[in-house]
Design a protein around this nucleic acid. Sequence first.
DNA 1: TTTCATCTCCCGTAAAAAGGGGATTTTATC
DNA 2: GATAAAATCCCCTTTTTACGGGAGATGAAA
Lengths: 208, 208
Amino acid sequence: MIEVFIIDDHPMVVAGIQALLNHSEVVRICGAAHDAGTALEMLGTSTAQVVLVDINLPDMNGIDLCVLMRKEFPKLKILGLSTFKERSYITRMMEAGASGYLLKNASKEELEDAVVAANKGRAYLSMEVAATLAVAQSVPSAIPMLTAREKEVLHLIAEGLTNQEIADKLFISILTVDSHRKNLLAKFGVKNTAAMIKTALELRLIAF
Amino acid sequence: MIEVFIIDDHPMVVAGIQALLNHSEVVRICGAAHDAGTALEMLGTSTAQVVLVDINLPDMNGIDLCVLMRKEFPKLKILGLSTFKERSYITRMMEAGASGYLLKNASKEELEDAVVAANKGRAYLSMEVAATLAVAQSVPSAIPMLTAREKEVLHLIAEGLTNQEIADKLFISILTVDSHRKNLLAKFGVKNTAAMIKTALELRLIAF
DNA sequence: TTTCATCTCCCGTAAAAAGGGGATTTTATC
DNA sequence: GATAAAATCCCCTTTTTACGGGAGATGAAA
Protein backbone atom coordinates (compact mmCIF):
# COMPACT_ATOMS: atom_id res chain seq x y z
CA MET A 1 0.00 0.00 0.00
CA ILE A 2 1.36 3.37 -0.96
CA GLU A 3 0.58 5.96 1.68
CA VAL A 4 -0.51 9.35 0.44
CA PHE A 5 -0.73 12.66 2.27
CA ILE A 6 -2.90 15.47 0.93
CA ILE A 7 -2.17 19.16 1.30
CA ASP A 8 -5.13 21.19 0.09
CA ASP A 9 -7.29 23.82 1.70
CA HIS A 10 -10.47 22.78 -0.11
CA PRO A 11 -12.48 20.31 1.95
CA MET A 12 -14.35 19.21 -1.15
CA VAL A 13 -11.16 18.30 -2.93
CA VAL A 14 -9.73 16.44 0.03
CA ALA A 15 -12.98 14.55 0.49
CA GLY A 16 -13.06 13.94 -3.25
CA ILE A 17 -9.61 12.43 -3.41
CA GLN A 18 -10.40 10.30 -0.39
CA ALA A 19 -13.61 9.12 -1.99
CA LEU A 20 -11.89 8.36 -5.29
CA LEU A 21 -9.07 6.40 -3.68
CA ASN A 22 -11.25 4.80 -1.04
CA HIS A 23 -11.51 1.41 -2.65
CA SER A 24 -8.09 1.41 -4.20
CA GLU A 25 -5.98 -1.64 -3.50
CA VAL A 26 -2.66 0.08 -3.97
CA VAL A 27 -3.11 3.53 -2.49
CA ARG A 28 -4.19 4.67 0.94
CA ILE A 29 -4.75 8.17 2.28
CA CYS A 30 -2.80 8.51 5.52
CA GLY A 31 -3.53 12.12 6.32
CA ALA A 32 -4.31 15.61 5.13
CA ALA A 33 -3.54 19.19 6.00
CA HIS A 34 -5.16 22.40 4.84
CA ASP A 35 -2.08 24.59 4.86
CA ALA A 36 1.66 24.39 4.41
CA GLY A 37 2.54 25.05 8.03
CA THR A 38 0.58 22.20 9.58
CA ALA A 39 1.53 19.99 6.64
CA LEU A 40 5.24 20.38 7.39
CA GLU A 41 4.60 19.56 11.04
CA MET A 42 2.48 16.53 10.33
CA LEU A 43 4.85 15.17 7.72
CA GLY A 44 7.53 14.92 10.40
CA THR A 45 5.72 12.02 12.05
CA SER A 46 4.00 10.68 8.96
CA THR A 47 4.76 7.49 7.09
CA ALA A 48 3.59 8.92 3.80
CA GLN A 49 5.57 8.14 0.70
CA VAL A 50 3.76 10.49 -1.64
CA VAL A 51 2.27 13.97 -1.08
CA LEU A 52 -0.39 15.61 -3.18
CA VAL A 53 0.15 19.36 -3.00
CA ASP A 54 -2.25 22.02 -4.14
CA ILE A 55 -0.52 24.89 -5.88
CA ASN A 56 -2.55 27.52 -4.10
CA LEU A 57 -2.37 27.27 -0.35
CA PRO A 58 -3.39 29.96 2.10
CA ASP A 59 0.02 30.44 3.67
CA MET A 60 2.50 29.52 0.95
CA ASN A 61 2.59 28.71 -2.73
CA GLY A 62 3.11 25.16 -3.88
CA ILE A 63 6.46 25.84 -5.49
CA ASP A 64 8.08 27.18 -2.37
CA LEU A 65 6.55 24.41 -0.29
CA CYS A 66 7.91 21.92 -2.77
CA VAL A 67 11.43 23.24 -2.29
CA LEU A 68 11.03 23.10 1.48
CA MET A 69 9.77 19.54 1.46
CA ARG A 70 12.59 18.42 -0.79
CA LYS A 71 15.03 19.68 1.80
CA GLU A 72 13.26 18.35 4.88
CA PHE A 73 11.98 15.08 3.50
CA PRO A 74 14.17 14.11 0.56
CA LYS A 75 12.61 10.68 0.15
CA LEU A 76 9.12 12.03 -0.20
CA LYS A 77 7.66 12.09 -3.70
CA ILE A 78 5.69 15.20 -4.55
CA LEU A 79 2.76 15.51 -6.92
CA GLY A 80 1.51 18.99 -7.83
CA LEU A 81 -2.23 19.50 -7.97
CA SER A 82 -4.02 22.42 -9.54
CA THR A 83 -6.92 23.55 -11.65
CA PHE A 84 -4.64 25.27 -14.10
CA LYS A 85 -2.61 23.86 -16.87
CA GLU A 86 -0.39 26.86 -17.14
CA ARG A 87 3.02 26.32 -18.57
CA SER A 88 4.76 28.50 -16.04
CA TYR A 89 3.22 26.75 -13.05
CA ILE A 90 3.88 23.28 -14.28
CA THR A 91 7.48 23.85 -15.27
CA ARG A 92 8.29 25.73 -12.11
CA MET A 93 6.77 22.99 -10.02
CA MET A 94 8.78 20.34 -11.82
CA GLU A 95 11.93 22.44 -11.48
CA ALA A 96 11.24 22.70 -7.77
CA GLY A 97 11.55 18.93 -7.58
CA ALA A 98 8.03 17.60 -8.01
CA SER A 99 7.59 14.13 -9.45
CA GLY A 100 4.50 15.06 -11.38
CA TYR A 101 1.64 17.36 -11.94
CA LEU A 102 -2.05 16.53 -11.88
CA LEU A 103 -5.03 18.57 -12.90
CA LYS A 104 -8.05 18.58 -10.64
CA ASN A 105 -10.12 17.19 -13.46
CA ALA A 106 -8.03 14.02 -13.30
CA SER A 107 -9.98 10.78 -13.21
CA LYS A 108 -9.64 8.15 -10.51
CA GLU A 109 -7.37 6.18 -12.80
CA GLU A 110 -5.08 9.09 -13.55
CA LEU A 111 -4.84 9.85 -9.87
CA GLU A 112 -3.89 6.30 -9.02
CA ASP A 113 -1.45 6.02 -11.90
CA ALA A 114 0.23 9.24 -10.87
CA VAL A 115 0.73 8.09 -7.29
CA VAL A 116 2.08 4.71 -8.37
CA ALA A 117 4.45 6.27 -10.90
CA ALA A 118 5.70 8.83 -8.40
CA ASN A 119 6.29 6.14 -5.82
CA LYS A 120 8.42 4.23 -8.30
CA GLY A 121 10.44 7.35 -8.91
CA ARG A 122 8.99 8.03 -12.29
CA ALA A 123 7.61 11.36 -13.48
CA TYR A 124 3.92 11.60 -14.20
CA LEU A 125 1.95 14.26 -16.02
CA SER A 126 -1.74 14.28 -16.83
CA MET A 127 -2.48 13.86 -20.51
CA GLU A 128 -3.58 17.46 -20.82
CA VAL A 129 -0.58 18.71 -18.93
CA ALA A 130 1.80 16.79 -21.17
CA ALA A 131 0.05 18.29 -24.17
CA THR A 132 0.44 21.85 -22.93
CA LEU A 133 4.08 21.24 -22.17
CA ALA A 134 4.62 19.96 -25.69
CA VAL A 135 3.16 23.17 -27.02
CA ALA A 136 5.17 25.13 -24.51
CA GLN A 137 8.41 23.69 -25.78
CA SER A 138 7.80 24.95 -29.27
CA VAL A 139 7.11 28.43 -27.91
CA PRO A 140 9.65 28.77 -25.15
CA SER A 141 8.30 31.61 -23.02
CA ALA A 142 11.02 31.48 -20.42
CA ILE A 143 10.21 32.66 -16.94
CA PRO A 144 12.53 35.45 -15.93
CA MET A 145 14.63 34.61 -12.86
CA LEU A 146 13.98 37.53 -10.57
CA THR A 147 15.89 38.34 -7.42
CA ALA A 148 14.04 38.94 -4.16
CA ARG A 149 14.47 42.67 -4.43
CA GLU A 150 13.33 42.72 -8.02
CA LYS A 151 10.17 40.85 -7.11
CA GLU A 152 9.53 43.35 -4.37
CA VAL A 153 9.94 46.28 -6.73
CA LEU A 154 7.82 44.56 -9.35
CA HIS A 155 4.99 44.19 -6.87
CA LEU A 156 5.10 47.83 -5.94
CA ILE A 157 5.18 48.87 -9.58
CA ALA A 158 2.09 46.77 -10.16
CA GLU A 159 0.42 48.52 -7.23
CA GLY A 160 0.81 51.74 -9.13
CA LEU A 161 3.65 53.28 -7.13
CA THR A 162 6.15 55.53 -8.85
CA ASN A 163 9.89 55.03 -8.51
CA GLN A 164 10.03 57.79 -5.92
CA GLU A 165 7.27 56.21 -3.85
CA ILE A 166 8.93 52.81 -4.06
CA ALA A 167 12.22 54.34 -3.00
CA ASP A 168 10.56 55.90 0.03
CA LYS A 169 8.84 52.69 0.94
CA LEU A 170 11.97 50.56 0.71
CA PHE A 171 14.27 53.20 2.20
CA ILE A 172 16.54 53.17 -0.82
CA SER A 173 17.49 55.74 -3.42
CA ILE A 174 15.30 56.37 -6.40
CA LEU A 175 18.34 55.61 -8.51
CA THR A 176 18.36 52.10 -7.14
CA VAL A 177 14.71 51.62 -7.91
CA ASP A 178 15.44 52.87 -11.38
CA SER A 179 18.15 50.27 -11.79
CA HIS A 180 15.88 47.48 -10.62
CA ARG A 181 13.23 48.65 -13.00
CA LYS A 182 15.72 48.70 -15.84
CA ASN A 183 16.82 45.17 -15.03
CA LEU A 184 13.22 44.02 -14.77
CA LEU A 185 12.38 45.33 -18.22
CA ALA A 186 15.47 43.61 -19.58
CA LYS A 187 14.68 40.31 -17.91
CA PHE A 188 11.12 40.38 -19.17
CA GLY A 189 12.29 41.38 -22.60
CA VAL A 190 9.74 44.14 -22.91
CA LYS A 191 10.11 47.84 -23.45
CA ASN A 192 7.61 49.34 -21.04
CA THR A 193 5.73 48.83 -17.83
CA ALA A 194 2.40 47.95 -19.40
CA ALA A 195 3.77 44.91 -21.19
CA MET A 196 5.77 43.92 -18.14
CA ILE A 197 2.77 43.90 -15.83
CA LYS A 198 0.79 41.89 -18.32
CA THR A 199 3.39 39.19 -18.72
CA ALA A 200 4.21 39.17 -15.01
CA LEU A 201 0.56 38.44 -14.27
CA GLU A 202 0.41 35.87 -17.03
CA LEU A 203 3.44 34.06 -15.67
CA ARG A 204 1.99 34.38 -12.17
CA LEU A 205 5.04 36.21 -10.93
CA ILE A 206 2.59 38.60 -9.35
CA ALA A 207 -1.03 38.14 -8.40
CA PHE A 208 -4.06 40.38 -8.50
CA MET B 1 -34.89 16.16 1.13
CA ILE B 2 -33.55 18.85 -1.14
CA GLU B 3 -32.28 17.38 -4.38
CA VAL B 4 -29.04 18.80 -5.71
CA PHE B 5 -27.49 18.49 -9.15
CA ILE B 6 -23.78 19.14 -9.64
CA ILE B 7 -22.21 20.61 -12.76
CA ASP B 8 -18.44 20.40 -12.53
CA ASP B 9 -15.79 18.86 -14.72
CA HIS B 10 -13.51 17.90 -11.84
CA PRO B 11 -14.18 14.33 -10.69
CA MET B 12 -12.47 15.05 -7.38
CA VAL B 13 -14.77 17.95 -6.66
CA VAL B 14 -17.90 16.02 -7.59
CA ALA B 15 -16.80 13.09 -5.48
CA GLY B 16 -15.89 15.51 -2.72
CA ILE B 17 -19.28 17.17 -2.64
CA GLN B 18 -20.95 13.80 -2.69
CA ALA B 19 -18.79 12.60 0.17
CA LEU B 20 -19.45 15.75 2.19
CA LEU B 21 -23.19 15.59 1.70
CA ASN B 22 -23.38 11.84 1.91
CA HIS B 23 -24.71 11.66 5.43
CA SER B 24 -26.75 14.83 5.27
CA GLU B 25 -30.34 14.53 6.37
CA VAL B 26 -31.61 17.46 4.36
CA VAL B 27 -29.67 17.33 1.12
CA ARG B 28 -29.29 14.59 -1.47
CA ILE B 29 -27.22 14.52 -4.64
CA CYS B 30 -29.48 13.47 -7.48
CA GLY B 31 -27.06 13.71 -10.35
CA ALA B 32 -24.01 15.31 -11.88
CA ALA B 33 -22.69 16.41 -15.24
CA HIS B 34 -19.22 17.38 -16.31
CA ASP B 35 -20.18 19.99 -18.87
CA ALA B 36 -22.91 22.50 -19.63
CA GLY B 37 -24.32 20.64 -22.62
CA THR B 38 -25.08 17.36 -20.90
CA ALA B 39 -26.17 19.26 -17.82
CA LEU B 40 -28.89 21.09 -19.73
CA GLU B 41 -30.07 17.80 -21.20
CA MET B 42 -30.11 15.97 -17.91
CA LEU B 43 -31.84 18.79 -16.07
CA GLY B 44 -34.78 18.39 -18.39
CA THR B 45 -35.72 15.11 -16.76
CA SER B 46 -34.28 15.83 -13.36
CA THR B 47 -36.15 16.52 -10.16
CA ALA B 48 -33.38 18.69 -8.79
CA GLN B 49 -34.31 21.84 -6.93
CA VAL B 50 -30.82 23.26 -6.61
CA VAL B 51 -27.83 23.18 -8.99
CA LEU B 52 -24.22 23.66 -8.02
CA VAL B 53 -22.43 25.17 -11.00
CA ASP B 54 -18.69 25.48 -11.43
CA ILE B 55 -17.69 28.78 -12.97
CA ASN B 56 -15.18 27.20 -15.32
CA LEU B 57 -16.67 24.51 -17.49
CA PRO B 58 -15.10 23.07 -20.60
CA ASP B 59 -17.83 24.15 -23.00
CA MET B 60 -19.32 27.29 -21.46
CA ASN B 61 -18.69 29.71 -18.63
CA GLY B 62 -20.82 29.62 -15.54
CA ILE B 63 -22.35 33.04 -16.10
CA ASP B 64 -23.75 32.21 -19.53
CA LEU B 65 -24.95 28.83 -18.32
CA CYS B 66 -26.65 30.57 -15.45
CA VAL B 67 -28.59 32.80 -17.80
CA LEU B 68 -29.59 29.80 -19.90
CA MET B 69 -30.80 27.81 -16.94
CA ARG B 70 -32.83 30.74 -15.65
CA LYS B 71 -34.69 30.74 -18.94
CA GLU B 72 -35.17 27.02 -19.31
CA PHE B 73 -35.76 26.10 -15.69
CA PRO B 74 -37.01 29.19 -13.87
CA LYS B 75 -37.78 27.33 -10.66
CA LEU B 76 -34.27 25.97 -10.32
CA LYS B 77 -32.05 27.63 -7.74
CA ILE B 78 -28.46 28.16 -8.84
CA LEU B 79 -25.37 28.21 -6.66
CA GLY B 80 -22.07 29.32 -8.21
CA LEU B 81 -19.00 27.36 -7.28
CA SER B 82 -15.42 28.45 -7.83
CA THR B 83 -11.94 28.61 -6.43
CA PHE B 84 -11.76 32.34 -6.89
CA LYS B 85 -13.22 35.07 -4.84
CA GLU B 86 -12.97 37.65 -7.59
CA ARG B 87 -15.38 40.49 -7.23
CA SER B 88 -16.14 40.65 -10.92
CA TYR B 89 -16.97 36.96 -11.12
CA ILE B 90 -19.15 36.95 -8.07
CA THR B 91 -21.15 40.03 -8.96
CA ARG B 92 -21.63 38.94 -12.53
CA MET B 93 -22.80 35.53 -11.40
CA MET B 94 -25.32 37.09 -9.03
CA GLU B 95 -26.47 39.46 -11.74
CA ALA B 96 -27.00 36.46 -14.00
CA GLY B 97 -29.54 35.19 -11.50
CA ALA B 98 -27.62 32.92 -9.17
CA SER B 99 -28.93 32.47 -5.64
CA GLY B 100 -25.48 32.33 -4.14
CA TYR B 101 -21.81 31.81 -4.54
CA LEU B 102 -19.63 29.26 -2.80
CA LEU B 103 -15.89 28.91 -2.67
CA LYS B 104 -14.41 25.47 -3.11
CA ASN B 105 -12.84 25.75 0.29
CA ALA B 106 -16.32 25.78 1.81
CA SER B 107 -16.87 23.44 4.71
CA LYS B 108 -19.55 20.79 4.83
CA GLU B 109 -21.67 23.12 6.96
CA GLU B 110 -21.35 26.05 4.57
CA LEU B 111 -22.25 23.80 1.69
CA GLU B 112 -25.36 22.51 3.41
CA ASP B 113 -26.40 25.96 4.59
CA ALA B 114 -26.02 27.35 1.10
CA VAL B 115 -28.23 24.67 -0.43
CA VAL B 116 -30.90 25.09 2.23
CA ALA B 117 -30.88 28.88 1.90
CA ALA B 118 -31.04 28.72 -1.88
CA ASN B 119 -33.93 26.26 -1.72
CA LYS B 120 -35.84 28.68 0.48
CA GLY B 121 -35.25 31.41 -2.04
CA ARG B 122 -32.69 33.22 0.04
CA ALA B 123 -29.31 34.43 -1.16
CA TYR B 124 -26.22 32.81 0.27
CA LEU B 125 -22.61 33.84 0.12
CA SER B 126 -19.63 32.17 1.76
CA MET B 127 -18.15 34.16 4.61
CA GLU B 128 -15.08 35.00 2.60
CA VAL B 129 -17.12 35.94 -0.42
CA ALA B 130 -19.31 38.25 1.61
CA ALA B 131 -16.20 39.83 3.04
CA THR B 132 -14.71 40.53 -0.38
CA LEU B 133 -18.00 41.99 -1.53
CA ALA B 134 -18.12 44.20 1.56
CA VAL B 135 -14.65 45.47 0.78
CA ALA B 136 -15.71 45.98 -2.79
CA GLN B 137 -18.61 48.13 -1.68
CA SER B 138 -16.52 50.37 0.53
CA VAL B 139 -14.03 50.79 -2.28
CA PRO B 140 -16.45 50.95 -5.17
CA SER B 141 -14.31 49.33 -7.84
CA ALA B 142 -17.17 49.01 -10.25
CA ILE B 143 -16.26 47.76 -13.67
CA PRO B 144 -15.50 50.86 -15.73
CA MET B 145 -17.79 51.35 -18.71
CA LEU B 146 -15.37 51.63 -21.58
CA THR B 147 -16.24 52.73 -25.08
CA ALA B 148 -15.23 50.61 -28.06
CA ARG B 149 -12.38 52.91 -28.90
CA GLU B 150 -11.13 52.99 -25.35
CA LYS B 151 -11.08 49.19 -25.21
CA GLU B 152 -9.10 49.16 -28.41
CA VAL B 153 -6.56 51.60 -27.05
CA LEU B 154 -6.40 49.72 -23.75
CA HIS B 155 -5.56 46.51 -25.58
CA LEU B 156 -2.76 48.14 -27.50
CA ILE B 157 -1.38 49.74 -24.36
CA ALA B 158 -1.34 46.31 -22.73
CA GLU B 159 0.56 44.98 -25.73
CA GLY B 160 3.29 47.43 -24.91
CA LEU B 161 2.70 49.96 -27.69
CA THR B 162 3.45 53.64 -27.06
CA ASN B 163 0.95 56.37 -27.83
CA GLN B 164 2.76 57.12 -31.08
CA GLU B 165 2.63 53.50 -32.17
CA ILE B 166 -1.05 53.26 -31.28
CA ALA B 167 -1.76 56.45 -33.19
CA ASP B 168 -0.04 55.01 -36.27
CA LYS B 169 -1.89 51.73 -35.96
CA LEU B 170 -5.31 53.33 -35.60
CA PHE B 171 -4.63 56.15 -38.09
CA ILE B 172 -5.43 58.84 -35.56
CA SER B 173 -3.45 61.61 -33.95
CA ILE B 174 -1.24 60.93 -30.99
CA LEU B 175 -3.20 63.64 -29.23
CA THR B 176 -6.32 61.55 -29.55
CA VAL B 177 -4.60 58.51 -28.15
CA ASP B 178 -3.44 60.70 -25.31
CA SER B 179 -7.00 61.74 -24.60
CA HIS B 180 -8.23 58.16 -24.60
CA ARG B 181 -5.44 57.22 -22.26
CA LYS B 182 -6.35 60.09 -19.95
CA ASN B 183 -9.98 58.99 -19.91
CA LEU B 184 -8.98 55.40 -19.30
CA LEU B 185 -6.90 56.32 -16.27
CA ALA B 186 -9.79 58.40 -14.95
CA LYS B 187 -12.33 55.63 -15.49
CA PHE B 188 -10.12 53.09 -13.78
CA GLY B 189 -9.43 55.50 -10.97
CA VAL B 190 -5.70 54.90 -11.08
CA LYS B 191 -2.79 57.16 -11.72
CA ASN B 192 -0.56 55.18 -14.00
CA THR B 193 -0.43 52.48 -16.61
CA ALA B 194 0.90 49.75 -14.36
CA ALA B 195 -2.07 49.88 -12.02
CA MET B 196 -4.45 50.17 -14.93
CA ILE B 197 -3.18 47.04 -16.66
CA LYS B 198 -3.37 45.13 -13.42
CA THR B 199 -6.96 46.07 -12.67
CA ALA B 200 -7.99 45.66 -16.30
CA LEU B 201 -6.71 42.09 -16.20
CA GLU B 202 -8.31 41.52 -12.83
CA LEU B 203 -11.67 42.72 -14.07
CA ARG B 204 -11.21 40.64 -17.22
CA LEU B 205 -11.50 43.72 -19.43
CA ILE B 206 -8.46 42.44 -21.22
CA ALA B 207 -7.02 38.96 -21.42
CA PHE B 208 -3.50 37.57 -21.55
C1' DT C 1 -34.36 69.66 -32.57
C1' DT C 2 -31.82 69.50 -28.87
C1' DT C 3 -29.17 66.79 -25.95
C1' DC C 4 -25.70 63.53 -25.05
C1' DA C 5 -21.98 60.47 -25.67
C1' DT C 6 -18.16 59.47 -28.41
C1' DC C 7 -14.41 60.45 -31.06
C1' DT C 8 -11.50 63.57 -32.54
C1' DC C 9 -7.92 67.20 -32.04
C1' DC C 10 -5.29 70.99 -29.51
C1' DC C 11 -2.02 73.68 -25.94
C1' DG C 12 1.20 73.75 -22.33
C1' DT C 13 3.76 72.01 -18.28
C1' DA C 14 5.61 68.79 -15.21
C1' DA C 15 6.76 64.39 -13.91
C1' DA C 16 8.03 59.79 -14.88
C1' DA C 17 10.11 56.25 -17.33
C1' DA C 18 13.38 54.34 -20.69
C1' DG C 19 18.04 53.76 -22.27
C1' DG C 20 22.90 54.06 -22.03
C1' DG C 21 26.64 53.89 -19.81
C1' DG C 22 29.28 53.04 -14.92
C1' DA C 23 30.93 52.13 -9.90
C1' DT C 24 30.79 50.53 -5.08
C1' DT C 25 29.38 47.73 -1.31
C1' DT C 26 27.09 43.58 0.70
C1' DT C 27 26.37 38.98 0.97
C1' DA C 28 26.68 34.34 0.18
C1' DT C 29 29.47 30.46 -1.56
C1' DC C 30 33.31 27.91 -2.63
C1' DG D 1 40.34 34.90 0.73
C1' DA D 2 38.85 34.88 -3.89
C1' DT D 3 34.62 34.78 -6.81
C1' DA D 4 30.27 35.80 -8.11
C1' DA D 5 25.84 37.60 -7.56
C1' DA D 6 22.99 40.89 -5.73
C1' DA D 7 21.94 45.33 -4.17
C1' DT D 8 23.10 49.81 -4.00
C1' DC D 9 24.11 54.43 -5.96
C1' DC D 10 25.56 57.77 -9.81
C1' DC D 11 25.32 60.72 -14.35
C1' DC D 12 23.25 62.06 -18.61
C1' DT D 13 19.79 62.22 -22.47
C1' DT D 14 15.63 61.35 -24.68
C1' DT D 15 11.17 59.72 -24.86
C1' DT D 16 6.90 58.93 -22.96
C1' DT D 17 3.25 59.75 -19.61
C1' DA D 18 0.48 62.40 -16.69
C1' DC D 19 -2.42 66.27 -15.81
C1' DG D 20 -4.66 70.78 -16.36
C1' DG D 21 -7.34 72.85 -19.27
C1' DG D 22 -10.28 73.15 -23.70
C1' DA D 23 -13.21 72.59 -28.28
C1' DG D 24 -15.25 70.99 -32.80
C1' DA D 25 -17.61 67.08 -35.55
C1' DT D 26 -20.75 63.40 -35.69
C1' DG D 27 -24.45 60.48 -34.99
C1' DA D 28 -27.99 58.45 -32.24
C1' DA D 29 -31.53 58.85 -28.97
C1' DA D 30 -34.99 61.55 -26.52
